[in-house]
C-alpha cells in the first residue's frame, strides 16, 4: 500500500454526470492490477470525512513519461461533486493499490466482460490485458456494455478500441439490444454455444449480479464479480465492509488462512472484507440476501 500526494493532470466530463480524472501517481501506476482500487481523500476536511474508493480505470504515461492513472466516476453525492469541481494542478491524497483484483481464467477460450453503468471502468484494465492476448490469437474477447439509457452509456469508444466484439444493451431500447445485459448474455451464450468454454467478469449493481447467478449455475460458467460496500479504511482495519460469503465456495477458491474471511462457528457462511478479500469475488462465494 502506498500513499501518494497526487497532482491532478486533467478532469473532464464524459457524459452528463460522468467524469474522468487523470492523476500523477507513479508508484501506484507501477503496481496496480486489473480490478484494484484507490482510496481518495477528496479534501482535507471533516465533511466529507471518509476516503472514497474508485477503481483504477487504466494506467498511462503522462507527459515526460511520468506514469499516471485514470479514474472514471459518476457524480452521486457530496464527495464526487467536489471531485468534479477540481482541476489540473489540484492535489489529492490517495492510497493504493488496494484489494484483490480479477484473476484471468486462462483455461477458457471466450472471455466475456459484463459491465453496467459506472461499473464499466473496473473492467477496462482487464479488457486491455485480454485484448493483447486476443491480438495474439490466444483467446476471444467479448465486451458487453450496459446502461439504463443511451445518455448514460460511457466508455463505448474505449472498449470498442480493444480486440474484441462489443455488444451494447440499453434498457429502454434506444440503442443496441433492448433490455438488460444479463438477458443479452444468456441469448449470446446459447446462440454461440460457448457455455463450456467461457468465463465472465462483471461489474455493476448487485441486482445485475443476482441476475447472473442463475445463468452461471445453469451453464456452469465461472464468473468473477466486483463488489461494493461502504468503506471506512480500505485497508482491513475497521471491518465495516463485510460481505456474506459461502464457506464451501470460499474454501474451494482461496487460501482462507491468508485471507480476512471469518466463518460462523458451526455454520455454512461467514464474512469476507470487500476491501481486502475483494472487491473481486467469485460469484458462487457471495451470498446476496443475508
Amino acid at each position: 500500500m502506498i500513499r501518494e500526494k497526487s497532482i491532478i493532470q486533467g478532469n473532464e466530463q464524459l457524459a452528463p454526470g460522468f467524469w474522468k480524472m487523470r492523476l500523477v501517481a507513479p508508484e501506484i501506476a507501477a503496481t496496480v492490477k486489473p480490478g484494484q482500487f484507490i482510496n481518495v481523500k477528496i479534501a482535507q476536511c471533516k465533511a466529507p470525512l471518509f476516503r472514497r474508493p474508485f477503481t483504477v480505470f487504466r494506467c498511462l504515461d503522462l507527459d515526460k513519461d511520468r506514469p499516471g492513472i485514470e479514474v472514471v466516476y459518476e457524480v452521486v453525492g457530496r464527495g464526487t461533486r467536489m471531485m468534479s469541481a477540481m482541476g489540473k494542478g489540484d492535489e489529492l491524497d490517495i492510497i493504493g493499490p488496494l484489494g484483490r483484483g480479477f484473476k484471468r481464467r486462462d483455461d477458457k477460450r471466450v472471455h466475456i466482460l459484463v459491465g453496467s453503468g459506472v461499473g464499466l471502468p473496473a473492467l477496462f484494465m482487464l479488457g486491455e490485458e485480454l485484448s493483447l492476448a486476443a491480438g495474439r490469437g490466444e483467446l476471444e474477447l467479448v465486451i458487453m456494455l450496459d446502461a439504463k439509457t443511451k445518455e448514460r452509456l460511457i466508455l463505448e469508444e474505449e472498449f470498442g478500441s480493444l480486440n474484441g466484439k462489443t455488444l451494447v444493451s440499453i434498457h429502454d431500447g434506444a440503442y443496441g439490444y433492448h433490455g438488460y445485459v444479463t438477458e443479452m448474455l444468456r441469448a449470446y451464450i446459447a446462440e454461440e454455444d460457448i457455455a463450456a468454454d467461457c468465463a465472465i467478469y462483471a461489474c455493476g449493481p448487485e441486482l445485475m449480479f443476482k441476475a447472473l447467478v442463475p445463468i452461471c449455475s445453469q451453464y456452469n460458467i465461472p464468473a468473477q464479480i466486483c463488489m461494493e460496500r461502504n468503506m471506512g479504511c480500505g485497508i482491513g482495519a475497521c471491518l465495516s465492509c463485510v460481505c456474506r460469503v459461502d464457506k464451501k465456495a470460499v474454501m474451494k477458491h482461496r487460501d482462507v488462512r491468508s485471507s480476512h474471511v471469518q466463518f460462523e462457528d458451526a455454520g455454512s457462511s461467514g464474512y469476507a472484507l470487500v476491501c481486502c478479500d475483494g472487491p473481486v469475488f467469485n460469484i458462487d462465494e457471495v451470498i446476496f440476501d443475508e
Binding site: L49, R229, C243, F263, Y271
Partner: peptide, 19 residues
C-alpha cells in the same frame, strides 16, 4: 462474527457504525 453487513454510514462530520 459481529453485526450484519452494511455496517458503516457517513454522517456529517462522523460515522454511524455497527461492527
Amino acid at each position: 462474527l459481529g453485526s450484519f453487513q452494511h455496517r458503516l454510514l457517513e454522517i456529517p462530520g462522523g460515522s454511524l457504525c455497527s461492527i
